[in-house]
Structures are given as structure tokens and as C-alpha cells.
Simulated assay, not measured.
Amino acid sequence: MTKLIAIDDGHGSETPGKRSDVIPELGRQVKENEFNKEFAKYLEIELKRCGFRTIQLAPTDYDTPLRARTDLANRAKADLLINGHFNAITGKFATSKAEGFSAHVHSKTGQAAKFANIALKNLSGGTPQKNRGLVQQNLHMTRESHMPAVLFEFGFMDNLREARLMLNVAFQKECAQEVAKAVCEYYGVSYVPESKPVAKYAPKPVHSAAAPKREESVQILTGGLNADSVKIIAEFFIAKKWWGQLQFEAPGNPRMLSGGLDPKMKTEYEAWLNERN
């Protein structure tokens, strides 16, 4: 049976304290959930394209209790749990020197650690960041899950350079792609890249038999004409439903370039022009 991957997007949108310092060019803080939920969304797209089944453990912006998340993953009998986060130390750009990504597991031995190390290798090939490596930590999400579970920290919210990445769609997709590639490698499945969009065929417009083709229409070179005269010529073309292109040349009388006009149209235009003169 196709493997089921549980995806958890970390904290809710209103979880206290889970946000960056104020980013100068934005004039506001960025909530951790603004990155987490996009990562979770793109990871699901990546995994489904590669043939995996997925389940989102916290699909809304509500701060779903941790117990509810792990209970759902356990009931669904997920094969692997992936948790996406952004880290912080002091919460202030001025006082924090931390940087980089890390993978957090309950034990440094076992399948969770094996998958985490594959993911760290893939993450190292993306946006230049410090690889903080594998971290053994007593966390609810990795401790209470009945399947291999890894919590990823993709950067630090109190590092200005990395905080700026949180709303960067290319970075969000990159993290999702690198973790998806790790899932594929872990299970021995070929990664399926996103296909490039195929340009849709657009048929050429069919001209009505009653209307002249553009290349068969008259072209006028005008010289020494005032605006009223040009307007009169334009109105003549509109009345005849002819295509017309007005260009301006050195002073002189307006003249016609036949441009493939049929004799009847050419005669009619010349007669009208002579009447005007």
C-alpha cells in the first residue's frame, strides 16, 4: 500500500510569541505560521505528485493542541510524520546570533534519525544556510507519535536574513521540495519533478469573408494634412469597414499604397480622394 505521510504545520496563527522581530521593509512581524502553513501546503503537493498519500494534522490557522495532532496521526496509522517550524532564541534581531536549519528527533538512532539525516543532506543543497545537524530533543510531536517523526526548523525568526525568507515563496517551495526528495529517497521511490507548463495551442482568428484581410487593406501616408482631414479619412475607412493605417510623411498630398487591394476598393478610394481634393 502507498505510504501515508502525516504533515504538521507547527503553530497556529495566533500562538503567543511565535513570530519574528519587526522586519524593517515590511514594518511588521511575520508569524511563524505564515511560513509553516505554506511549507505544509507545498510539501503535500510535492508528495502527492510522487505518489504518496498525505494527511494534514492541523489544516486550519487554529492552534490545534499537540495531543490532537499526534492522536490523529496515530489513528490514521501514518508511516512518517513531518513537522515544519521556524526557530527563535531571543526573539530580537539585535541580540540573536543564531542561524541555520536543523532536524529534531526523539532518538538519534532508529528510522526517524535515518530519514532526518537524508533530509539534512538535501536541505544543505538549497539556499545557503548553516546546517545545525541532527538534534535529540524531548518533544511531544516526536515522542508521542507511533511512527518515525521529525521536526524541522528551517531557520531563525530572530535572524533578519532568515526571517526575510519566511514569506519568500521560492524558499517555501524549496524547503518542501528538499524534504519531499528525502521522503522519496528514504522509501526508495523516484522523485517526480514538477512538469513545466505546456503552451496551449491558440488557433489563428478566422476572418469573415466580407471583411478584407489586414494585408489587403489600404495604407495611407499623410503629409500636410491637418487633424480634421486625418479624421475624415479615418471615418471613411470605418464606414467602409476597411483596415487603415495612417503614417506621416514629408509635406505633400495624401497618397494610397495599394497593398494588394482589389481593383474595386482601389477605384472607390481614389474616386473619393479626388472628390475631396
Score class of each variant (00 low, 15 high):
160 L>K: 13
133 G>M: 11
162 E>A: 07
174 E>N: 09
161 R>M: 03
145 S>T: 15
176 A>W: 01
137 Q>P: 00
181 K>Q: 15
157 M>V: 15
162 E>G: 07
183 V>Y: 14
159 N>G: 08
164 R>K: 15
149 A>K: 00
175 C>T: 06
194 E>I: 07
178 E>H: 10
160 L>R: 13
132 R>A: 01
160 L>A: 12
150 V>R: 07
167 L>Q: 14
187 Y>N: 02
174 E>H: 06
182 A>V: 00
154 F>S: 09
167 L>N: 14
140 H>C: 03
153 E>R: 01
146 H>W: 04
187 Y>Q: 02
139 L>Y: 06
184 C>L: 12
133 G>Q: 11
143 R>D: 04
134 L>N: 01
192 V>P: 03
150 V>Y: 08
173 K>P: 07
160 L>D: 09
175 C>L: 13
165 L>F: 11
141 M>W: 00
140 H>P: 07
195 S>F: 01
189 V>R: 13
180 A>H: 06
136 Q>S: 00
148 P>S: 06
151 L>S: 00
174 E>G: 13
154 F>W: 09
140 H>Q: 09
164 R>E: 15
178 E>G: 00
184 C>N: 09
194 E>T: 10
189 V>Q: 13
186 Y>G: 09
171 F>I: 05
185 E>L: 05
191 Y>T: 01
159 N>L: 09
170 A>M: 06
173 K>E: 13
157 M>S: 10
138 N>K: 12
151 L>R: 00
181 K>G: 07
195 S>T: 11
178 E>T: 00
165 L>Q: 12
167 L>K: 14
152 F>Y: 14
190 S>F: 03
171 F>S: 05
135 V>T: 05
133 G>W: 09
147 M>D: 04
179 V>S: 02
179 V>A: 05
137 Q>A: 14
191 Y>E: 03
185 E>C: 05
147 M>N: 05
152 F>C: 01
147 M>T: 06
185 E>Y: 04
190 S>C: 03
143 R>E: 08
